[in-house]
Amino acid sequence: MPLEVMDRRASDNEYLHRDFHGALSSALIYLEEHFGAEGLRDYLRRFALSYYAPLREDIRERGLIAIADRLRAIYDLEGADYSLQMGADELLVEVRACPAVAHMRASGYAVAPQWRETVRTVHEAICEGSPWGFELLEYCEETGANRQRFFRRSDAQ
């Protein structure tokens, strides 16, 4: 067999490597095993505060619209079955099947027992320091389906 070569430019493909969900899940399992659920949440909060800093700034300026724009972008990209319901002071989110959990289950990756924290802790951290709060109303461990609520905090100006 002669030398085989594959040569690709970045523009040849779309950037969407769903196996990264499995890698993140493995990382969360490791964190819980070595640092407990508290360590896992501490890491996710620190990551969210750091990585989503531009989004957090945007939320302070545009409020719930900034949150809705971000959710639409990632859920559309990942092919999620979801709906958003926007009110004046509240954004309700329903994810009928989480695409990350669906991919992990289909590919045989272990889903971290604390996977829900990628929604709850991350969204709480994104809202930190803003007039907005977050609560995870429901979460299905099997499919990752969930209902979320972003709301204006009662102590906000």
């Binding site: 490597h17 196996d19 890698a23 993140l24 990382a27 990551f47 750091s50 990632i74 990942e78 991350v122």
Partner: peptide
């Protein structure tokens, strides 16, 4: 949710955290 397109920054921050 953390999108798979956001994993790499999460990974990098995990190394720093650890």
């Amino acid at each position: 949710m953390i999108s798979c397109t956001e994993f790499i920054p999460a990974y990098s921050e995990l190394f720093r955290y650890l």
